[in-house]
Design a protein around this nucleic acid. Structure first.
Lengths: 177, 177
DNA sequence: GCGGTCATGTAAGAGGTTACATGATTGC
DNA sequence: GCAATCATGTAACCTCTTACATGACCGC
């Protein structure tokens, strides 16, 4: 049940239409909670129905017409309450690690190329994060909000760094065998 | 579409019944592809239907009676083919990072306790992995299969280490603010 | 008016979660 | 016989993914 809260967060940062949200997800919140426009439109409908957000009155409510939403007080309260909820970490579900486990049984079948491909992808993502850090977080922010957002970005950076390290090791190991 | 392949891998390692698979998932393959007994039974039914596995003839096929499965040649081929498939890394979906992002907007509301709770969980998981490493992978294996399985475990260890590092930093940061 | 783009939406289906149901076996 | 446990299964529901549909606007 995180998507509605991701949307509320994004809308609090800036009122937006569905498509704008989709784009912002692609390069910001979506780094940590990915989504597609179909999910977003559905969730916007539900949130509006529930009185958490409303369409700005300026927008024409027709198909093909832009419709901007803003968060209502009930939405902000809902989000603040959600932040305090405990929730266990999700169990891991990683196809690459699973493939490697399968490869241990039926043989590594051209997995080297796939590992190298993933390594390049993670290196690209890391570069993107570092660029954002340089652009938005140098010098390191001192306000509470900036520090928290920087922490979240750091999470992304560390996670990509983990993958790069593991993949590098895995490639070396496979080549040596 | 990874669950059937996770099951094939587990069954190749050792023919099992549904409940045995569920237990082994809880402490081995499930570290990287979690599942529940309901999913497993459904998938076993499909795999049998598709001719990838079969119930061992010794078992009585009645409700409440143990039913053991083994992988057929078609299942092994299917798994070998799957290992070679390219697949992009899954987009990240992490509720904790999302919560922190929301907290940047509506205020960190007792998140410190939650971060400490997660830290303890990840430390526990890391300890479990290290125990397995000590038990099953010392000295480091030299055969292909053992090396690959060790690599997968190393992935788990590194991932938990990442979380512990990030959480420690986050807690320190929050306390300082 | 035609193609491209912006923008909102619908539909079908796979995968996953939660809760519950049913039968067999064992210990007391 | 009864409770606990082992074991297999059903059902309902929700989320997410993929593919497609529809309408408005703009440049040419």
């Amino acid at each position: 049940m995180s998507l509605p809260h991701a949307i509320l967060t994004a809308l609090l940062e800036k009122p937006s239409s569905g498509l704008e949200l989709t784009r912002r997800f692609d390069r910001s919140i979506g780094y940590f909670w990915s989504s597609t426009h179909q999910q977003i439109y559905r969730e916007l409908g539900r949130l509006e129905q529930a009185g958490r957000i409303r369409a700005l009155p300026t927008a024409a409510p027709a198909r093909g017409q832009k419709k901007e939403y803003e968060v209502l007080p009930a939405g902000r309260e809902e989000l603040a309450a959600w932040v305090a909820l405990p929730e266990d970490p999700r169990p891991v579900r990683d196809p690459l690690l699973l493939r490697m486990r399968a490869a241990a049984v039926v043989g590594t079948n051209g997995m080297g190329a796939e590992l190298r491909r993933h390594l390049a992808l993670h290196e690209g993502q890391l570069a993107e994060y570092l660029e954002i850090e340089e652009r938005d977080f140098t010098p390191p922010p001192t306000t509470g909000e900036g520090r928290l957002r920087h922490l979240v970005l750091r999470g992304g950076i560390d996670l990509e760094t983990f993958w790069i390290g593991w993949l590098t090791r895995a490639i070396a190991d496979l080549d040596a065998a």
